[in-house]
Design a protein around this nucleic acid. Structure first.
Length: 438
RNA sequence: GGAGAGAUGGCCGAGUGGUCGAAGGCGCUCCCCUGCUAAGGGAGUAUAGGCACAAAAAGCUUAUCGAGGGUUCGAAUCCCUCUCUCUCCGCCA
């Protein structure tokens, strides 16, 4: 959420900045509402002030035992007028709030301008794609070839965009998540958290998924459909990312200065409806309704958020380096960034079968955008509460990392060499072969 | 699921219809005194808005005592609904 004062005083500038990310701010409607708000609010407050002074007078007179019927008659008519303006005001404020909640964050000055991902800028690249001397397979063929990856049964259980892993592959998936958690907690200083996978609407509003992106989420009601038909708002949504529960830990909190920065990591499943992505990445593990992710969140002093962003990306990169997976870091352009982000780096891992780099992590500085929605504050140097800055990033998407491992570590015979750093998590195993189903 | 208790400022805690944005304490800030492993005295110390202003300060003003609604000229206080916390019972991994 943007600051409404900023919109009042600097509307043209803001409209321009939002246009860079392809968002048209409804300036006319906003101005009209603001003008109306000003009038109605002043009027309302005047009436309230009148009532308050009169009531105070009544109180004073009564305590002295004087007759108050004269003043009381004077105030009697205020009630209706007040109620009317109060209702009007509330209506206007709601409308303004609705506009405000749907406005994306302003891009940071360093963000390259552009309409879509073709304008993203490569920041750096790490590792050399491996040269294969045999015909390579994609992760689906590899996994199915091993008898450890089964989309058909997953479809029977749930439908499209679900997966089923078995044996060594399921274990490798778990190993990856464990490995990531260990690195982030032991080497990067994150606090591990276990968080709810079902969250309230307030939490989703805090991080920016609601009200605008409800269709991307899965809703859950206690007792199922029947009970939801009476209460038309679902009680819970499945988290689309651990960013939601972790970041909302500081919602409506005033964090003491000395406890900053807060760095949390959590391994959770993520649930996304993937509405609007029909036909994209339908094959394989790349785009699923349910996937695991190790998420990193920083809650920091506003002065430190860009420094923290660089650190955060570095922490995610470290995982790929230790796994020896080639990747590149991209700065997203204005048109490609997510709703809440002021600046985003994507990390893209090399997928040999696709002969391209694919997103495996997205690291964003949201500045005060989420904090303002959440009223997440800290007690600043001068003793006053001030808004925090929040950052989040994947460190990494576990399913996609698994895809990268399968494709980059495949052998001619269809087996997989297990990356060195994962072997201790795999009971010392160094290869995944078709017998791995045991 | 049943029964009961509760939710007040950074924290603790008083306050059951009027001068209460809220006593007192703790903490914190500043000042004074004293002097040295301390203590004492004084002052200050919630948040978010609106108006006006070039802007800041000051000013005027509104709202907020878990949330929402109601009663009333007036609500922290009375009524209703909800949320959350705690205790006991039941059920459950």
């Amino acid at each position: 959420m943007l600051e409404i004062q900023q919109l009042r005083t600097d509307l043209n500038n803001i409209t321009q900045q939002l246009a860079k990310r392809g968002y048209t701010f409804p300036a006319e409607a906003f101005n009209a509402l603001e003008a109306e708000r000003k009038i109605i609010q002043t009027q309302t407050q005047e009436l309230q002030a009148q009532r308050n002074t009169a009531s105070k007078k009544i109180g004073q007179s009564k305590s002295k035992g004087e007759d108050t019927s004269a003043i009381m008659a004077e105030v009697a008519h205020l009630g209706d007028a007040l109620k009317q303006t109060e209702n009007q005001l509330e209506h206007i404020q709601h409308h303004l709030q609705k506009i405000l909640l749907e406005v994306p964050n302003l891009p940071h000055i360093s963000v390259p301008e552009g309409k879509d991902e073709t304008s993203n800028v490569r920041i750096r690249q790490w590792g050399e794609p491996r040269q294969f001397d045999f015909d390579i397979k994609d992760h689906v063929s590899i996994g199915e070839g091993l008898g450890l990856l089964d989309f058909e049964t997953a479809a029977k259980l749930s439908g499209a965009r679900f997966s089923l892993m078995k044996g060594g592959l399921a274990r490798l998936h778990r190993a990856l998540a464990q490995f990531m958690l260990d690195i982030h907690t032991l080497e990067h200083g994150y606090i591990e958290t276990y968080v709810p996978y079902l969250v309230s609407r307030d939490s989703l509003r805090g991080t920016g998924q609601l009200p605008k992106f409800e269709q991307d989420l899965f809703a859950v009601t206690a007792g199922g459909v029947e009970s939801s038909s009476t209460e038309n708002t679902p009680e819970y949504h499945l988290i689309p990312t651990a960013e939601v529960p972790i970041t909302n830990m500081v919602r409506d909190e005033i964090v003491p200065l000395q406890s900053l920065p807060l760095k949390y990591v959590s391994h959770t499943p993520c649930f996304r409806s993937e509405a609007g992505s029909y036909g994209r990445d339908t094959r394989g593990l790349i785009r699923q309704h349910q996937f695991d992710k190790v998420e990193l969140v920083h809650i920091v002093h506003p002065d430190q958020s860009y420094e923290a962003l660089e650190q955060l990306v570095g922490h995610a990169e470290k995982i790929l380096q230790k796994l020896a997976l080639p990747y590149r870091v991209m700065a997203l352009c204005t048109g490609d960034m997510g709703f809440s982000a002021a600046k985003t780096y994507d990390i893209e891992v090399w997928l040999p079968a696709q002969n391209t780099y694919r997103e495996i992590s997205s690291c964003s500085n949201c500045e005060a955008f989420q904090a303002r929605r959440m009223q997440a504050r800290f007690r600043s140097e001068n003793g006053k509460p001030a808004l925090l800055h929040t950052l989040n990033g994947s460190g990494l998407a576990v399913g996609r990392t698994l895809v990268a491992v399968l494709e980059n570590y495949q052998n001619a015979d269809g087996s997989i060499t297990i990356p060195e750093v994962l072997r201790s998590y795999m009971n010392g195993l160094d290869q995944l072969e078709s017998s791995g189903a045991k």
